[in-house]
Every structure is written in C-alpha cells, then in structure tokens.
Amino acid sequence: MLVLRAVVEDYIRSQEPVGSAALSKERDLGVSSATIRNDMAALEDEGYLIQPHTSAGRVPTEKGYRYFVDRLATVVPLSEAQRRGINSFLSGSVSLKDALQRSARLLSEITGQVAIVASPSLSKATLRHVELVPVAMSTLLAVVITDTGRVAQHGLTVSAMPTADDINRLSSAVNEQCNGQSLSSASETVRALGGGTGFETVREAADALADAFASMALDERANELYMSGTSHLAHSRSLTDLAPLFDALEEQVVLMKLMSNLSEEPSATGVGVSIGSESHTPELLHASVVSSGYGRSTSPVANDSERNETSPDQDSTNEPIAFVGSIGPTHMDYAATMAAVRAVARYLTFFVSESGSGD
C-alpha cells in the first residue's frame, strides 16, 4: 500500500505512467526495485493499478484512487498564503450572495478546477425577521429574512386591508414567537396566532402569511449555484472528455443532488469524494467531485487563528444547509482539493453564523 500511495502521488504530479525504477530511485521505500516491481504487479492484479502499454509504467485505477482518498485520515493544511487569501476574499463580502460568488472564484483559483457553491435552500432556513408592508388595496408584501441572510418576498392577498396598527401588532407577534423557528414550524405558529383571541382583524393576513411560510418550507431546491473556473477545463482535459463534462455542468439539478449527497455523508475529513463512475453520471466518468457542507456553527470560532486549520471537529454544524465543491480530473490533487474545499466551507459556516447572529 505504500507503493500504491507512491504511484498515486507521482502520477498526480506528473500525469505520466509510473515505473518501478523511478520509484526505487526517487522514493525511499526501504525495499529493492524487484520488490517494488512485484508489488506493482500484485496491485495491478488486484485492480488498483493498470498498465496502459506493455512497456510503460502503471497508472492508478478508480479503485486505486479510492483507496488513496479513504486513507487520507487528515487533510493537509493549506499554506499561510492560501489561508490569508480566503480570509481576504470573504472578509470583504457585503452579503451572502457576494460571499458565495467570491468563494467560487477563490476555490477555483486555489484548485485550478471548476468550483461550485450553492446558496442555502429556504427549506433548511430558520426565521429571523419578517416585515409586512401594504402595497395595494388588497395586497401585503411579506419581506422574510432568514438566519442565513437570505431575503424572500411574498405577496399576501386579503379581502380587506387591516389598519396599520393591526399590521404592526401582527408583525411584532410573529417576530416574537417565530424567531429561530423553521419555516414549517413558523407556519403552524402563525396560523394558530391568527386564530387566537385579539387577532380577529388580521386572521386573513395571518393565514396568508402561514401559507407563504409553508410554501417556502417545501422549497427543497438551493436558490442558485455559483460556478467558476470552467476555463480551467481546457488546460487539464482532452478534447474528447470536454463535451460530456460541459454537459454535466449544464445539468445543475444532477450536480446539485450529487454534491449535496456527498456533503451530507459522514466522513472523518468532513469532505465527500466521488471518483469517476461512482457518481453514476456518464458525463462525469473521467472526473472526480469533492464536496463539503457548510451550515450553522454550534460554536462559531472567534478569530482567524482558530479558524485556519485545526481539528476535524472544528466549526461543527448541526446540519449542512448547502454545499461547496470542486470538479476536476480523476488525477486531481485530492489532498490539496479536499483541504481547499473544507477550508472554504468552514469560512462560509462562520460567515453564515455571523450573519445569523445579526453581526
């Protein structure tokens, strides 16, 4: 397995078949060239390596990459310059959308691959504030702000417009009783509130608001995908592989489901990896996908030094509310890509936590 790791690392670096003589010369594996040659033959028999040509060295198979990735128990820390770059990019964000766009650009620059960042879906958000504004004779505009910083607007139709005092009273009650609730719970709370004593004049508005919350709670889709780095594909892949991969990037629903599932799988590194055919997506047969979830931090970190690279449990989340990921060739630098994806996910977790606290 040390020989396998050496082959994978050398092939990732050179993208040329790796021979036993080169390993014996460049690596201190503590065994003879003949032993390395026998081990490589055994690894080929077991499906970890393949020999593209009779006289050539060997290259890793999907099984070889999978073994390599699964043994990355710890993710290599990013360099100080990379950490400063992430901090600089995200610290200047003026909104969640801006932070997500910046994250996609930065991750693409770090990895040299395609970066994809999803905005949180409303179905996983909790209510932070709602404002009710009359906009017509029979229409109220509900401006809903969630803990992730997302702002959604819904028109509420009523047969008779309540007074300004009644509208303010309803808004105050909703914000007091629903703050921190999921949108589905908030829907039930508002409906019960409208049916209670003292709210008869705004019952219709309360029911309409409850319906709006329920509709938002059923929205399982991420609001938007932010993508960067497609130009990198032309420098890292053969032309025959480009067309299907671009097709895959167009199929955002497929990518969203794949990367979301990867980000929610339990992992010692906090990062999910799909290699080649593991994605069950023909267009990604020659590509690997690395993804990590970001969400609400149970104990937001206080400063950059704590936020850089510490234990795998750092910035733990209740559950991911969205994902950040990278797509590249199967011979990508997995250790570096996983480190970059995890670091950006942690910074987004911190950003969302800060936004949710009202800072």
Score class of each variant (00 low, 15 high):
172 S>H: 08
250 E>S: 12
104 A>L: 03
234 A>F: 11
336 A>D: 03
73 A>I: 14
187 S>H: 01
126 T>P: 02
87 N>K: 15
76 V>Q: 13
130 V>K: 02
159 S>H: 07
307 R>K: 13
78 L>M: 08
199 F>D: 02
335 A>H: 03
78 L>A: 10
9 E>A: 08
35 T>K: 11
55 S>V: 04
271 V>E: 08
41 A>S: 08
352 V>M: 06
76 V>E: 15
25 K>P: 03
250 E>N: 13
161 M>F: 06
84 R>W: 14
11 Y>Q: 10
138 S>W: 03
29 L>N: 10
236 S>M: 10
331 H>N: 14
174 V>Q: 06
274 S>A: 15
277 S>K: 09
137 M>P: 07
87 N>P: 02
271 V>A: 08
83 R>K: 10
341 V>N: 06
8 V>P: 03
217 A>Y: 13
222 A>Q: 06
352 V>D: 06
157 T>P: 05
272 G>D: 06
160 A>Y: 09
309 E>K: 08
114 V>N: 06
359 D>L: 14
55 S>I: 05
16 E>D: 10
317 T>M: 14
211 D>Y: 04
315 D>I: 04
348 L>I: 01
282 P>H: 07
215 S>M: 00
33 S>C: 11
321 I>A: 03
304 D>W: 12
36 I>N: 01
18 V>G: 11
44 E>Q: 13
238 S>E: 13
2 L>Q: 09
187 S>W: 02
148 T>C: 02
325 G>T: 01
134 P>D: 07
107 L>T: 02
217 A>P: 05
332 M>W: 01
40 M>Y: 03
67 Y>V: 15
259 M>K: 00
156 L>I: 05
230 T>K: 08
95 S>V: 00
245 L>H: 02
88 S>H: 07
261 N>H: 09
130 V>P: 07
86 I>Q: 14
41 A>L: 09
249 L>A: 04
346 R>E: 12
136 A>S: 10
313 D>I: 13
309 E>V: 08
74 T>F: 05
3 V>H: 03
158 V>P: 08
4 L>H: 00
146 T>Y: 03
252 Q>M: 12
141 L>E: 14
89 F>Y: 15
165 D>S: 07
143 V>F: 08
265 E>Q: 15
171 S>K: 12
113 Q>C: 03
118 A>F: 00
57 G>M: 01
310 T>R: 15
107 L>V: 02
314 Q>E: 13
46 E>F: 02
59 V>R: 11
254 V>D: 15
126 T>K: 05
95 S>R: 09
